[in-house]
């Protein structure tokens, strides 16, 4: 059985299920209780589970993130909500210097089963400090795991896995995804960390993306299908560990690759993907790997400027055409269109 729900609902339902499943799970964050969360992910949970397990905090990201680390060291499984990824910078010492290090630095004697949920993303006119995609900061760090689901089903499956994982997991959400809908399995659905998904098979080109960008990539790929261009979409889902074999296997089939990412271009996730492809699929490439990423500017407030700075479907489509043109590609009308889920 499956039901069609929003990404937000999938997160909410999973948090509730994990609270019910394991007494050691507790939620920690600013305004997650009476206010029900800035983005209403935790709606109703304070009423159901009480303040012991749904714990509002003062505004002190370093303090409560660090406290969650300490609680995790003693065997609790805290799920922290940091209101947006921008504020995680206030807690970055605790995340990088402590959560990521303890298991290794203390010789495996302690575990930090902690989830930090936080949304990234721009496009809501929140201006430069509230519109960033900083996941690469965390994806760079051994000892952390970083996941970035794009669909309600993956949001559910990865959140459940993250809560049950014994390592600190950065769970990246996106403001623009909360209202998106999708089929979500009813049962105890989990998705393994460290595995990407081919969300649409294709022959001619691979689009690699994650989080919001993976949704755009899928839309573009379906549209191109109507023009006889068969694009494959690889949704990374996990940024650390990164599923390099799935990316490389796809590019070996299609010979062309474009990365769509919401973060800034230089040193971004796409740079890692491009490096991976050149090493893992060098002899299969018919064109250089291209990246479609955010303009390298503190994101402006004014709408036209904000829109211009963010990667979108049009830019992705243009770059795909450039890559195809450069390799003498001619569209092939296909008798049956490939849809999501087709074998």
């Amino acid at each position: 059985m499956a039901e069609n729900i929003t990404y937000r609902q999938a997160l909410h339902d999973t948090l509730r299920a994990e609270l019910l499943r394991d007494e050691n799970v507790l939620l920690i964050g600013e305004e997650i209780g009476a206010f029900e969360g800035s983005y209403k992910i935790t709606a109703g949970l304070l009423d159901e589970f009480g303040p012991r397990r749904v714990r509002d905090t003062p505004i002190c990201e370093e303090g409560f993130t660090g406290a969650a680390i300490g609680a995790a060291m003693l065997g609790l499984r805290p799920v922290v909500e940091i209101m947006t990824i921008n504020f995680s910078l206030l807690a970055i010492d605790q995340i990088i210097n402590h959560a990521a290090k303890m298991h290794a630095m203390f010789g495996g004697q302690v575990r930090v089963p902690l989830v930090i949920r936080t949304p990234g993303g721009g496009g809501q006119q929140l201006a430069a400090t509230h519109s960033q995609n900083l996941e690469v900061f965390y994806a760079h760090i051994p000892g952390l795991k970083v996941v970035a689901p794009s669909t309600p089903a993956d949001a559910k499956g990865l959140l459940a896995t993250a809560v049950r994982d014994d390592d600190p997991v950065i769970f990246l959400e996106n403001l623009a995804l909360y209202n998106t809908r999708g089929e979500v399995p009813d049962d105890d659905h989990t998705v393994p960390i460290g595995t990407a998904a081919v969300t649409k098979p294709g022959r001619d080109l691979t689009i690699v993306a994650y989080s919001r960008a993976a949704v755009i990539a899928l839309e573009v790929a379906h549209r191109l299908e109507e023009e006889g261009i068969s694009a494959e979409v690889v949704d990374l889902r996990s940024l650390r560990p990164l599923d390099r074999p799935t990316v490389c296997a796809s590019v070996r089939r299609t010979h062309r690759a474009v990365v769509l990412e919401d973060d800034w271009l230089s040193y971004g996730i796409g740079a890692e993907i491009a490096a991976t492809i050149q090493e893992g699929a060098f002899d299969y490439l018919d064109a250089p790997v291209r990246r479609v990423a955010a303009a390298e500017v503190p994101l402006p407030y004014a709408k036209p400027l904000e829109t211009a700075a963010l990667p979108n479907a049009a830019a992705l489509t243009r770059v795909i055409r450039e890559v195809l043109d450069a390799t003498g590609f001619t569209p092939r009308p296909t008798p049956g269109r490939t849809r999501l889920g087709d074998p």
Binding site: G108, P113, G194, T195, P241, D243, P245, T276, E279, G280
Partner: peptide, 26 residues
């Protein structure tokens, strides 16, 4: 050892200069 407590797919275990694990599961 102990970089991660829960083993997950595709965790990189390369030494400096090792090729990227692009083919098989880690």
């Amino acid at each position: 050892d102990h970089v991660y407590a829960t083993q997950t797919a595709n965790t990189p275990y390369g030494l400096p200069g090792d090729p990227l694990p692009c083919d098989q599961p880690a």
